[in-house]
Amino acid sequence: MGARTVRRLLSKIGALLLTLFLSSVVIFSAVLLTPGDPVVALAGGVRPTPEMIDAIREQYQLDQPVWVQYLSWVGSVLTGDLGTSFVYKTEVIDLIAPRFGITFLLVIYTLVLIVVFGVGSGILAAVRRGRVEQAVLVGTSLGVAMPTFVVAIVLIWIFGRVLGWFPVYGPGEGLLDNLYHLTLPAVSLAVLYIAYISRITRGAVVAQLSSEHVETARVRGIPPSRIFRRHVFLNASPQLLSVAGTTIASLFAVAAIAEHAFGLGGIGVLLTEAAARKDLPVVQTLSLMLVALFVVLNAMVDVVIAIIDPDSARPRRDA
């Protein structure tokens, strides 16, 4: 990477950090926007006792100006002090830590499915025109209308009642058993994304296949497999990578649906339960973590794309 590319990248990552800062302000201000007394909002669904009121005022520095409140909130999140949930009556970190592993595993499992089947079928559809392409197109049309919860209940019905090959409830014990238990949840999460990624892959690959520089390679007699590797897939990959960050970040949020359906106690279930019980501190912390994940992933994606295509790191380029 040349100096120019590095500088462009830094400015892009700077913009991402600004986004992170601004979205943390948005998430923080949820307390201020909640109707009623912020103390009550932070106490969540419970009626605060006088001791709780003091504890909340102390923890969130509610007597201080708003910007001090914000700084102390961000400061404590950054230092790993995620505060106390007054609904669950425990430290937020103790709520998140034990649930994180299963969600992480579920997201990774789902990602593997998405990459293998989504990217795979997209390439297949682009390369094999005709019947294969038609089949993939019909499949993806159905797939993008198949939300996680619908796939989940169909899978639960088929495997829980009719076939019984895979467990339909709980996370299991130990890594292998975990994976076994996570198969159906991962499939239910993956279907919609497989369809989505497959379409993007097909579009990107088809665009490259019909591009003029591929035409040049063809007329020069470069073998088709080599053209595919060095010109088609390489040039299509930035487009795929650019949706990767968003996809992974949103998987962590959408995992809630699969966790809910298959009785997995993960982060997603914690998020929705906390929301249902109006436990604002927990929801805020988890939201901030997801946004931070989004920013970090996108920064990584930008670096990878810049390595593939140094010209891409220009600050802003319209489609």
Partner: peptide, 21 residues
Amino acid sequence: EVIFAIPGLVLAVLAVSMFGK
């Protein structure tokens, strides 16, 4: 850009925890 960084489901969940079900 800021709105884009917050997944839709998360924003909805945040709204529910503020305003109730």
